[in-house]
């Protein structure tokens, strides 16, 4: 059996679903961040597979994926910094314990 772009897209949707479930279910901020990264990388896979389908002369999808990687890196940096700041002041990174703001 040959591996076609359709297989990549199928796999990517499964990874995206896993990432989304992690974001919805997990209470640990770092785990949620990991779920977001899974979602972003699933989209990267989809973009690359679509680029393959539309022909390799136009590189829109691949360029898009590179930008997504860069943005994901920046997002991880800021996210981890915020998680660290919250851990320093509250001693926890579970979003259940983040309850100073309520109303």
């Amino acid at each position: 059996m040959t591996i076609t772009p359709a297989h990549f897209i199928g796999l990517a949707f499964i990874i995206f679903a896993i990432g989304f479930l992690v974001v919805v279910v997990r209470k640990n901020a770092i785990a949620i961040l990991m779920g977001v990264e899974l979602m972003l990388n699933a989209v990267n896979l989809i973009l690359l597979a679509f680029n393959r389908i539309h022909g390799t002369m136009e590189l829109d999808g691949q360029v898009f994926a590179i930008f997504v990687i860069a943005v994901a890196a920046a997002e991880a940096v800021v996210g981890l910094a915020l998680i660290l700041a919250v851990y320093r002041s509250l001693g926890t990174v579970s979003i259940d314990d983040l309850s100073a703001l309520k109303g």
């Binding site: 990432g19 989304f20 901020a29 977001v36 700041a85 919250v86 100073a100 703001l101």
Partner: peptide, 26 residues
């Protein structure tokens, strides 16, 4: 501490929403 909590909640929500939007773009 409230400011850090605000930033973190904003981040977790925004990062997830924009990842979903990115799938739409793809």
């Amino acid at each position: 501490p409230a400011s850090g909590e605000a930033g973190l909640k904003y981040f977790l929500y925004g990062a997830s929403a924009s990842a979903v939007m990115l799938l739409g773009f793809a």
